[in-house]
Simulated scan of single mutants.
Amino acid sequence: MTDTTRTLIERWKSDPNGTYQTWFLWPERLKNFRSIRRGIGAVVEEIHAGTFGNAYRGSSLETVVASIAEQRQIFKGADHAFLWKPKLRIPDIYENADNQRAFARLLHTCNCCDTEAEMLTAIQRLSGVGIKGLGPAVANLLYFIHPTLLPPFNTAIVNGYNALTGAAVKLGKWDHYLAMRDGILALNHRYREVLSNDLGALAGLLFDVGTGRYPAPPRNDLPGEVSAWEDDLAKVREQASALAKQIQAGKLEDATHTEVQGWLRDLGKSLGYAVWIATNDRGREYNGEPLSLGCLSALPATLLVSGGETVPLIDAVWLDPATLEVAAAFEVE
């Protein structure tokens, strides 16, 4: 009997463009945990001190959620649930001080406690308050406090979980989140040796299934359905391989482009010219240094008159050092 879920996990882990390798193994990921936890602590402190304010924009919460939303594609849109929607008056943690404090109690408890029971009690207590517009999207903050106990939560993860398990989890409901959490823990335990105790790994798989990157395996072992699913999985691998080759080709092309710009820079300087490097290429590395090192930091205003907005984007420009008139301009192809 084929364990299709295990096959799916192993194929997904080897995909260089899947969430496992692009986010879960991303070196910066663990550094972000520390900064996000500090940010959550700052939110709690401001609410307790009465200085949090009544707006999302410019708040400490916006800073934290923005850091989460920047965590690659899996958390894109994580801020939507926290954006103030004035016509609906949601989420109601900006104008209602009691709701604000209830939200802070949840964050503080999860930030300070160590046990699963304490966290679940805190979640159920917040759910009981019934804060309008504040649902399980909060789990995206809680995940960064206790990644081994609380999975993240968004539309794609829910869709992936439902597709993989046949469940019917709905967004916006804490009891559905907790039920999904139980299912994720069971799945993670079953496939622990090919996943991680960090629930972000399994959440990443569910995200890629939920976005349609990977097809969910059939929930029965009928040979025809399993064979068709394996064919679909093979197509994903072929597409991933082709994309990886395209990305690598693009990197080589960029490297060659920069190398030629470097030659033009050095040749122009050796001939006594002042050199300009395109604005969008100035920070590229060439021989261990910025490509624009020793070049002009600004172009003369005479080159930036009406119609001259493209001049700063020319790959390399040689100018007379005395008059700053253009002697030659080069586009690398």
Rank of each mutant, 00 (worst) to 15 (best):
H146W: 05
A278R: 06
A216W: 01
S270I: 00
K173R: 15
D79S: 14
P16K: 12
L185D: 03
V260A: 05
P217R: 03
R57Q: 15
L149D: 11
T165A: 13
Y161V: 00
V209G: 02
E193W: 06
F33G: 01
D15C: 13
A278Y: 07
A274C: 10
T155H: 08
F207W: 13
E331H: 11
T323G: 09
T63I: 10
N54I: 01
L141R: 04
H146D: 04
G183Y: 06
E70N: 12
V236A: 05
V129K: 12
I131W: 00
K132C: 01
A168S: 15
L107G: 01
N99V: 13
L61E: 10
L303T: 08
R192P: 01
A117K: 12
G308W: 10
I40Q: 15
E28N: 15
R57K: 15
R57W: 01
V194S: 03
I47F: 08
N96D: 14
P290T: 09
M180K: 08
P290E: 11
D175P: 02
D231A: 11
S241G: 03
W318I: 08
G58F: 05
A163R: 14
L299N: 07
R37P: 06
G210D: 02
L164N: 09
C113H: 08
I68V: 15
A139L: 00
G268H: 09
E309D: 14
Y191W: 13
D254T: 03
G128H: 09
